[in-house]
Design a binder for these strands. Structure first.
Length: 580
RNA sequence: GCCUCUUUAGUUCAAUGGUAGAACAGAUAUCUCGUAAGUAUCCAAUAUCAGUUCAAUUCUGGUAAGGGGCACCA
C-alpha cells in the first residue's frame, strides 16, 4: 500500500482534502464543529462534533458529491496570518478551535486557511486551489475520543484518501481489496486452520490443519531454545490470589484476568502471563552466580480478559500461547543477553521473510526502582539497538516503558498495515524484588538478579495469523499443513501405485494425502490448488510403468517428472532449508 | 468500555410485512476420466428474546456474536 505520509506533496494534498471534506460537511451539517484533521499513513481523517447527527458510510456519496462541487468551483486556498486575539474572535463559536488556539505556543504564528466560505485554523501548508483536489474517496466513519482520552466525549471521525490521479486512487483502492483477500480470518476459514464459536469469544479452536502449523512452530522453537541454553518448564494455569498479590497483578491487572472463587471460597485466577511461575521455578533452589544466565522458557496457555471490541481473529485473543522465557541474569550480563535474544529473534523472523521494527520504550514517569539501574539498562539497550540496527533502524518511545523496567518491542504489520507487537524484550527489576529472589555472588553475598521477559514469536496464535497473511495461505513447505496431494488418474488402474507412493512419502515424514475421490482429474487438480496444497502428484500409466511421479507445484502449470526418491529428496531439502 | 455497522443453508450471496432463491461445498446416481469446475437429482438457512401487527426473516427494542474505528494492550 502507498504510504502517503512519506510523500510530502501527497501529504499536503491529503491535508487539503481533509479541509475540503470539512467544508462539504459544514455545508451539509451547518452546526458541525471541527477538532483536528491530520494526514496519516494511508490518507487523512477529520474529527468533528456534529451534535446529535451521525455520519454513516451511506452518507459518503452525498458528502463526496458536495466535495466535487466545491472542487469544481475552484476557489483559491488563501493563507491568513492572525494575532491570537483575531484568531479567538474568528473562531469564537467553536470551542474546539478555541481550545487549540489557547494551547498554541506563545511565540507561534497563528494561521488560518480560507477557501470560499470556509476557513479553518491550520498550520498548513496547502495546495493552491481546491480544484487540485479531484481524486478522493471517503473510506470509513467511526467514533473517536476527544483528545484520545476515553473519559472525554466521543467525536466523529471520517477517514478518506486522496491522490493526484484517478489511476493512483484506483490502485490504492485495489490494494485495499487485495489486502482483504489475504485477511487471516478469511483464509483461516477457507483453509480450515482455525475457528471460533459463540460460546468462547476470542478463544480460537485450532483445527487439525492449524494445529499442524502450531505444533511445527513449537517444535522448531523448542529445538532452537534447548540448543541455546534454555530450559523449558510448565506450570499451573490456575493460581491462588496470593500469588497475584505478591506479583502485583492483583492490584494492577485484575480487571484483565479471569478470576474465580473455588468451592473452598478461595480466590483464584487464570494466569495472564507466566512470570510469577518462572520466578517460583527459579526460587525452587539456591542459585549461584555461576548458574546465570538461567533461562526458563514455557509455552503455557495464558488467559487475558480483553475487551470484546478489541478482539481480532488470531491477532488479539483471550487465550493464547506465548513463546515466553524469563532469563535471570546479572546486571553486567544485560548487553550480551539482549544481543543474543535480538539475534535469535532476527534469525526466526528471517526464516519467514518477516520484517519488523524495534521500538525502544524508556523510563515512564511513574517508574519504580533505582534511577541508576534504569539509566544503565537504557544505555545498554540503546547500545544493542544502535549496534544491530543502526541509528535509524529503530524507533524511540520515550516514557513508554513499563513501570518495572525499559523494553524493546518488535512490531510487524498485518495485511492492512496495522501494526502488531510480536516479540518483546523487557527488563524487570520489580518482580525479583517482590518475590525476593537472589543468587549467591562470588563473595558469598546474596544479590538480586535482573529478570528479562522475552518472547520471539510473541504469541503463537498471533504469529500464525501474521504468517497466514504474509504468505496469503501458501505456506513454506515445512509449516504447510498440506504438503503433497496424490492424484491417481484412474482409481481403477492407478490406485495401487498411488497408495505405494503415499506410503513412501509418509515413511519419509511428508504430510501427504491421497485424493482418490471419484472426480475427474481436472476437478481434483483445481480443488487441491484452491486448498493451496504445495505439491500435487499425478499418477497414471506412464508413472506406474516407469516408477516415477509427475509433480505440479502450487501456482505453476509446469509438470515435472521425478523418480520417487528424487522427489522425496527434493521435499526433504526444501523442508530442511526452510525455504519457500 | 465508547461510537457505528452487520447477522438468511457448511461457505459466499439474493429476495420479501403474507415464513425464502441461487452458487459453491456435501450426499446419491451417472460418466471411467492425463493437469483449474462433466451431467442430473437430493440435502440444507432467516442468531436469540421481546414488542408492534390479522400476519415479522423483513419494522422497533434488548441480548449474543461478528466487522470498522476509538480507548485499552505487562
Amino acid at each position: 500500500m502507498i504510504n502517503i505520509k512519506e510523500n510530502e506533496q501527497l501529504s499536503i494534498l491529503n491535508h487539503s482534502c481533509a479541509h475540503l471534506m470539512a467544508q462539504a460537511i459544514k455545508h451539509l451539517y451547518p452546526h458541525a464543529k471541527f477538532w483536528v484533521g491530520p494526514v496519516v499513513e494511508d490518507g487523512f481523517y477529520y474529527d468533528m462534533d456534529l451534535g446529535n447527527d451521525v455520519i454513516k458510510e451511506e452518507d459518503f456519496p452525498i458528502i463526496e458529491k458536495e466535495m466535487k462541487k466545491i472542487s469544481k468551483d475552484g476557489k483559491r486556498i488563501v493563507r491568513i496570518e492572525l494575532t491570537k486575539e483575531e484568531a479567538l474572535e474568528m473562531f469564537k463559536d467553536d470551542e474546539y478551535k478555541l481550545d487549540l488556539i489557547e494551547n498554541l505556543p506563545i511565540d507561534a504564528t497563528i494561521t488560518a486557511y480560507r477557501q470560499g466560505d470556509y476557513t479553518d485554523l491550520c498550520r498548513g501548508p496547502h495546495v493552491e486551489s481546491v480544484k487540485e483536489i479531484k481524486y478522493f474517496k471517503l473510506l470509513k466513519a467511526s467514533g473517536a475520543y476527544y483528545k484520545g482520552d476515553s473519559k472525554n466525549k466521543m467525536l466523529q471521525r471520517v477517514y478518506g484518501v486522496c491522490f493526484y490521479s484517478q489511476e493512483d486512487l484506483d490502485k490504492q483502492l485495489y490494494l485495499i481489496e487485495e489486502a482483504k483477500k489475504r485477511d487471516h480470518r478469511k483464509l483461516g476459514k477457507e483453509l480450515e486452520l482455525f475457528m471460533f464459536d459463540e460460546t468462547a469469544p476470542g478463544m480460537p479452536y485450532m483445527l487439525p490443519n492449524g494445529l499442524i502449523m502450531y505444533n511445527t512452530l513449537v517444535d522448531f522453537w523448542r529445538k532452537e531454545h534447548l540448543a541455546n541454553g534454555y530450559q523449558e518448564f510448565s506450570a499451573p494455569m490456575l493460581n491462588m490470589a496470593t500469588l497475584w498479590q505478591t506479583s502485583g497483578h492483583w492490584d494492577h491487572y485484575k480487571d484483565d484476568m479471569f478470576v474465580l472463587e473455588d468451592t473452598d471460597g478461595v480466590m483464584q485466577a487464570l494466569k495472564p502471563m507466566s512470570c510469577p511461575n518462572s520466578i517460583l521455578v527459579y526460587k525452587n533452589k539456591i542459585r549461584s552466580y555461576k548458574d546465570l544466565p538461567l533461562r526458563f522458557c514455557d509455552v503455557d496457555a495464558i488467559h487475558r480478559n480483553e475487551g470484546a471490541a478489541s478482539l481480532h481473529g488470531l491477532l488479539r485473543v483471550r487465550v493464547f500461547h506465548q513463546d515466553d522465557s524469563h532469563n535471570f541474569i546479572r546486571q553486567d550480563q544485560i548487553f550480551d543477553e539482549i544481543t543474543s535474544i535480538l539475534q535469535m529473534a532476527k534469525r526466526f523472523y528471517d526464516i519467514f521473510g518477516l520484517t519488523f521494527t524495534p521500538y525502544l520504550s524508556t523510563r515512564p514517569e511513574d517508574y519504580m526502582g533505582e534511577l541508576e539501574k534504569w539509566n544503565d539498562a537504557e544505555a545498554k539497550l540503546t547500545e544493542v539497538l544502535e549496534k544491530n540496527f543502526g541509528h535509524d533502524g529503530y524507533v524511540l518511545n520515550p516514557g513508554d516503558g513499563a513501570f518495572y523496567g525499559p523494553k524493546i518491542d518488535l512490531k510487524m504489520q498485518d495485511a492492512l498495515g496495522r501494526e502488531w507487537q510480536m516479540g518483546t524484550i523487557q527488563l524487570d527489576y520489580q518482580l525479583p524484588e517482590r518475590f525476593d529472589i537472589t543468587y549467591v555472588a562470588a563473595n558469598g553475598e546474596k544479590v538480586r538478579p535482573v529478570m528479562v521477559h522475552r518472547t520471539i514469536y510473541g504469541s503463537l496464535e498471533r504469529f500464525i495469523g501474521l504468517l497466514i497473511e504474509q504468505f496469503a495461505g501458501h505456506f513454506p513447505l515445512w509449516i504447510a499443513p498440506r504438503q503433497v496431494s496424490i492424484l491417481p488418474v484412474s482409481n481403477e488402474y492407478h490406485l495401487e501405485y498411488a497408495k505405494k507412493v503415499l506410503q513412501s512419502l509418509k515413511d519419509a515424514n511428508i504430510r501427504a494425502e491421497l485424493d482418490d475421490r471419484e472426480e475427474k482429474l481436472g476437478y481434483r487438480i483445481r480443488d487441491n490448488q484452491i486448498k493451496k496444497v504445495n505439491y500435487q502428484v499425478v499418477l497414471g500409466d506412464a508413472e506406474k510403468e516407469s516408477g516415477t511421479v509427475k509433480v505440479r507445484k502450487y501456482g505453476s502449470q509446469e509438470q515435472i517428472s521425478y523418480t520417487l526418491d528424487e522427489f522425496i529428496k527434493l521435499l526433504q531439502d526444501e523442508i530442511n532449508t526452510k525455504a519457500r
